[in-house]
């Protein structure tokens, strides 16, 4: 009952009980599950907030201006992502490539910021072993970064696939939509992390 390719073209999906595509239902079920994954990581971070025995503490080390910029980049990448989807939905493959490449580049930029940040922290003496803050901070933001990395790879392979005939077309724009859903989810997780870990974290201690 899944899609089949015949001669490089997608055969229309047989109708489903709800009229919704299997893959899209799967993606939303997955994202519902991911809420619990990040929820548990965030719960751990918050429960341990302020319980570190030794420094460095969040207030001393988190850099709000720099992280604001990377947050801004990730948010904007989400806009690029929807524009890429809009382009492929109207059959504009070139536009799709441009917007999607922009999305992936911004994702990579965000990752660059994160690498810079982690590196900086290590030089300042904060590693995952240093204290509870380091342990929970690196784990939470590291898992988010891993998700971004997977997203960047996914987006880039879609760009690559769009050069092969019949793989990314107006008819199967769902492929792009699925990647988009994942990407936006990773974005909203960051919205939560930025607020709880950075903005509130630095204000309260």
């Amino acid at each position: 009952m899944q899609q089949t390719w015949v001669g490089g073209h997608q055969v229309p999906h047989p109708e489903t009980a709800t009229g919704l595509d299997h893959r899209k239902v799967l993606m939303w079920v997955f994202l519902g599950s991911e809420c619990m994954f990040f929820g548990s990581l965030i719960a751990t971070y918050l429960v341990y907030a302020g319980r570190s025995v030794v420094g460095p503490f969040p207030k001393e080390i988190l850099d709000i201006p720099v992280t604001s910029v990377s947050t801004f980049v990730l948010l904007t990448s989400s806009l690029m992502m929807v524009l890429a989807l809009a382009a492929i939905s109207r059959g504009d493959v070139r536009g799709f490539r441009v917007w999607l490449l922009a999305t992936a580049l911004m994702g990579a930029t965000f990752l660059g910021f994160q690498v810079f940040e982690f590196n900086h922290f290590v030089h300042q003496g904060l590693t995952p072993r240093t204290n509870l803050f380091g342990t929970t901070f690196f784990t939470l933001t590291g898992f988010h970064g891993a998700h971004v990395t997977v997203g960047v790879v996914w987006l880039l392979s879609l760009v690559g696939l769009s050069f092969r005939k019949g793989h990314v077309t107006q008819e199967n724009s769902l492929k792009v939509e699925l990647a988009g859903l994942y990407w936006h989810f990773v974005d909203i997780v960051w919205i939560v992390i930025f607020t709880l870990v950075y903005l509130i974290g630095v204000t309260t201690g």
């Binding site: 709800t18 939303w28 929820g39 548990s40 719960a43 929807v82 988009g180």
Partner: peptide, 27 residues
């Protein structure tokens, strides 16, 4: 808007908001 929950099937909103609410409650 970006994830189209305002426009898509309510099933999707249900799946997502369900996970979200449960996660929030547990936090």
């Amino acid at each position: 808007f970006y994830m189209h929950l305002k426009f898509d099937s309510r099933l999707f909103s249900g799946l997502f908001v369900g996970g979200l609410m449960l996660a929030t409650a547990i936090i």
